[in-house]
Design a protein around this nucleic acid. Structure first.
Lengths: 158, 158
DNA sequence: ACGTAATCTGGAATGAGTCAAGAAAACGAT
DNA sequence: ATCGTTTTCTTGACTCATTCCAGATTACGT
């Protein structure tokens, strides 16, 4: 099946330029993900199924995996939460993650260009990425929080 | 059973001060962990069993969980690898993690005291921690690596 | 239009971690 | 020292996210 022609050509081109075949699931995943950043694999699957009718879970993981390898999508795996995906790649931006609900937001690198890119002592590692995650509670969970601001670590991570 | 008297009193005191009961599994976990930083729950269980004879997996998770809540141990969960634990808490230090084998090393905060502690735009989140992970290949995996330095992202993340 | 290699389907399996119910042990007061 | 209460440990089943497998399908280069 030649995939839906309504999808912007740019997506097709990006896939092709990355050496990936253009398939309906891939276009749908990329398109949906662009509109819903920081979605989980499950959310992507649901969203894509709403457009294509049915797509296997495996296909979703394959697409996400292939696109992540090709750097068309970026995978974030916040501790204690399922992985999340976004189409913003290339710029070394960081994330703000809610401990409670997992809501994730982008944060531009605080200290300019590449401040956090080199550890003080690399111990012989070939470092290729500095990942920064700001942990806290999102506005919604702050309001819904049973423990008032007085306590500091009453929560316990899920 | 009154726990083994050979364990340094400081461990007992730390547990008590944290409001936790002093039990053999807890002492053993803390003691073993102090000597083997960045161990996985499974490794902790194995190590502790070597000292106490037998300890349930659940007990190990409970101990680690309780101690993490009391900030006697810190839990690190590098994406794609099982959680790791360490007894160094309080100092906001960061980590160097090997993408391939998961080997984890401590890194002092590169930029001094609290440079990475505040995101440029918090979006209303109540941020309480800035986690920094430097990803790369450890010296051993660098040597064992099939792809020479020429390629850049041929690996694919587990 | 064809052949082939890459991709998708469906279902089973894995691994890390958690839940639940009851037995056991530590703490605090008597 | 002993008792009762409360926390902690044991055993075993279970969840969730993700991966593995074998076979059917499909996109792409010629």
């Amino acid at each position: 099946m030649t995939p839906d022609a309504s999808v912007p050509d740019t997506l097709r081109q990006r896939l092709r330029q990355a050496g990936l075949r253009v398939t309906a699931p891939r276009l749908a995943v990329l398109e949906w993900l662009a509109e819903h950043p920081h979605a989980t694999a499950d959310q992507v699957a649901t969203g894509v199924r709403g457009q294509l009718g049915s797509v296997s879970t495996q296909a979703v993981y394959d697409v996400l995996g292939a696109c992540a390898r090709a750097e068309l999508v970026r995978r974030i795996e916040p501790a204690g939460h399922p992985a999340r995906f976004e189409t913003r790649t290339g710029d070394n931006h960081h994330h703000l993650v809610c401990r409670r609900c997992g809501r994730t937001e982008d944060v531009d690198c605080a200290v300019g260009a590449a401040p956090c890119l080199e550890p003080s002592d690399g111990k012989g590692f070939a470092v290729d990425e500095a990942e920064v995650v700001f942990w806290g509670l999102c506005p919604d969970c702050l309001v819904a929080s049973p423990t008032t601001a007085a306590h500091h670590h009453e929560e316990g991570r899920a």
